[in-house]
Every structure is written in C-alpha cells, then in structure tokens.
C-alpha cells in the first residue's frame, strides 16, 4: 500500500492525547494523515497496556488505509501483535539488538538520540532511523535540556541513516531547523494540539518542500516572457507547473529554440536562460 519507500518520509507525527482533550485519538490522527503526515507513531507512556493495545490496533488499521508506516513507542510486544511497521525506543529502553531479535529483520527500529555520540552508536547498532532532539524545550518531554539546532547540523553532517528533528518544533521555528540541516521534521503539540491538524501538517510539509526545492536547485533567475523571473523549478515542465499554467496549450521556446512538450522534463533550467511561453488568442 505504501506508495513511496518509508525512508522518504518528511513529516513524522506522534500521538499525544493530552494535547487534544475531548477529541478522539483516531479522528485527530486521521486528520494528520489527510494533511500529508507520512509516518505515525503511537506514544502512550501513561495508559494501561490494554488501552495501548486497543489504540495500536485502531491506528494500525487507520495507517494501513492511508499507506503510511505505523510505529509503536516502547511496546515491542504490542507492535508485534498489531503488525506495526516498527518500534521506537529511547536511550533507557531495551537495546537495539534485543528489539531486532524480537521483531525480525523486516521491521523498522527508531531510536531517540540527544547527542552525536548516541546517534553514531544507534547507526552502528542497526537503527533504521533516529530522532534528533529535543531541538527546543518541550512540554512533551519536560525537564530534558534542549540540544539546539547545532546537534541538528552535526547529525546532518555525520549521520547517513534518516534522522528526524524533534522537540518543540513549531511552524514558527521549523525554518530554522530546516536551515540547520534537517529534512524530516516531527512535531507533536504543534500538530495534534492544533485546531486543524490537517492544515498544520500541510504547512509543515510546505516548508519542507520549499527548503528542498531551494536546496535542489537554488533559486534561479531567468528571463520569462521578457521579464526577470525567479524560480526553483529544475526543468521546463516544473516551471510550467510552478506557474500554474500546466493545463494550457502552450508552446515553449528556450533561448530562441522551440522545445517540444515531450522534452520539457529533460530540459534543465539554468540561470539566465530566456524562456518564452506562448499560446493562441483571437485574431484576424
């Protein structure tokens, strides 16, 4: 069901029922999936085992419908029982090797890390991804010192497996975390505690998308229909789509040479190129 490899995830959401009193857990989490969250973790450190199992079963069913990987925090047994895609463990929980033995090779193991040393160890020990945080102080994990964005930058430089920045990340500071080198974000209260979790997810994803676009191609300045224009599009097809003109019957010219539509995707846009997009209008 999952359409893209799990490791391509960009927005990691974690449950926190205390952030949405009066709202149903599954309903709130469904909103995050509608908003585009592409990996979901059940974290319930206070409830009795039976209710965690119940929540896990419901969220497993939900995430399967949306084709999104489902991770259970701590409870390896529950993860196995509901056929979750993996578990997430902290520094004080069972060793990675032990979790791997219980889960088998096909499942994901994520590990919370608070410094580069822990991160490198988790990577060596076979973690599939790591959490990097808490980047900012957070009520979700009170009392833990924030690691700041400098650890995010270290992780970006040294860690090869996917890492997700977590802890106190909101729409107000997400850009700083992305600038520090994160390409995957996890937010808890900023999403499930929001009035509109789907909209919050879309806003986070938009920030990540913009950051990736800039990274991929920097912003290019071109001449478009005689005017200076800035674009993050990498090729002609992306440019036309970015301009919201993809539905029109358009002919494109690049530096005076016509580019047939079939070639648009293969036509890179470099700084300074002169592009004309033309169409037909009434005339005699």
């Amino acid at each position: 069901m999952t359409e893209k490899p799990w490791s391509d995830f960009e927005l990691y959401v974690i449950t926190a029922s205390s952030n949405h009193p009066g709202k149903d857990l599954v309903e709130v989490m469904e909103q995050t999936l509608i908003g585009g969250a592409d990996i979901l973790q059940l974290r319930n450190k206070t409830g009795p085992w039976e209710s965690v199992l119940q929540e896990a079963a419901a969220l497993r069913e939900l995430t399967r419908r949306y084709g999104v990987p489902f991770i259970v925090n701590d409870y390896v047994d529950i993860a196995i029982q509901v056929d979750a895609d993996g578990v997430h463990i902290g520094q004080d929980d069972m060793p990675i090797a032990e979790a791997r033995r219980l889960l088998g090779p096909g499942k994901l193991i994520g590990v919370s890390t608070h410094n580069l040393e822990q991160a490198l160890k988790a990577e060596r020990d076979g973690a599939d991804y790591i959490g990097v945080g808490p980047v900012y102080p957070t009520d979700t994990k009170p009392g833990r010192a924030a690691v700041t964005t400098s650890y995010v930058t270290e992780a970006a430089e040294h860690i090869r497996i996917p890492f997700v920045a977590i802890g106190g990340i909101t729409l107000d500071n997400a850009d700083l975390v992305l600038e520090a080198g994160a390409r995957r974000l996890c937010a808890v209260s900023a999403i499930v505690g929001s009035e509109d979790p789907a909209d919050a997810c879309r806003s986070f994803l938009e920030k990540i998308g913009r950051c990736k676009a800039i990274e991929r191609n920097a912003v290019t300045t071109i001449k478009l229909n005689g005017e200076k224009h800035q674009t993050s599009a990498g090729n002609l097809e992306e440019l036309v789509r970015e301009l919201g003109q993809g539905h029109k019957r358009i002919v494109a010219e690049l530096n005076g040479v016509i580019v047939s539509k079939g070639m648009w995707a293969d036509t890179a846009i470099q700084s300074g190129v002169d592009i004309e997009l033309i169409q037909f209008v009434g005339g005699g």
Binding site: N225, G226, Q245, R249, L277, I278, Q279, F280, G282, G283
Partner: peptide, 19 residues
Amino acid sequence: ITFAVRRVDLDSYEDDSIL
C-alpha cells in the same frame, strides 16, 4: 479560422486560449 500567437498571461489561471 485565423488566430494570433501571443505570450501566455502568467497572471491568469483561466485558459483563455482561443482553441
């Protein structure tokens, strides 16, 4: 029928193409 060739109006989403 005849028509003219012009630059696309990039500010307009609507397809005003005569065709």
